[in-house]
Design a protein around this nucleic acid. Sequence first.
DNA 1: GTAAGGATTGGC
DNA 2: CCAATCCTTACT
Length: 169
Amino acid sequence: MKRVGKDFFTGDVLNVAERLPGMDIVIKRGESETRYTITETEAYNGTDDRACHASKGRTPRTEVMFREGGILYIYFVYGMHWMMNIVTGMENNPQAVLIRGAGDISGPGRVTKVMGIDGSFNGESVITSQRIWIEDPGRRVKIVSLPRVGINYAGEPWISMPWRFLIRS
DNA sequence: GTAAGGATTGGC
DNA sequence: CCAATCCTTACT
């Protein structure tokens, strides 16, 4: 079993966000497992990062981000899209990695739609879950980092931080 | 209770 | 360019 464990997800969000592209998300439904290679991520880095939901404090929605890394933070935006994040870091240090692309899927809203991810996955542990986890096949991939998308409201310097990570194709 | 706005997407 | 669509948060 190549399932990625707790030590990886309790590490710093920037390290996790940069290393996830090239690893696989595995979704198990019934007896069938589907693998999607992660192609794009973004890091949301603690209470100082004005683009991170946790910068507004510990609320019912952001509560999962304050827990120990390795669980999912799933939320609903624009009245139609689910966003999937993996919480990272230690307890009380709210961080998460947004999954923006996997396999042939481009865009975070499409990722959750194709994978069947919704609010029922919020707080679920990718370390122990029997329906979603991460595997590391040991692929060598080149990573490009760029500014994050859709967070202009956060202002500088957060708009310009190169915390979006993609596989260089 | 009310209001504003969003870590997006698809269509014009 | 802009509408869709509803949840979360802040404020009265």
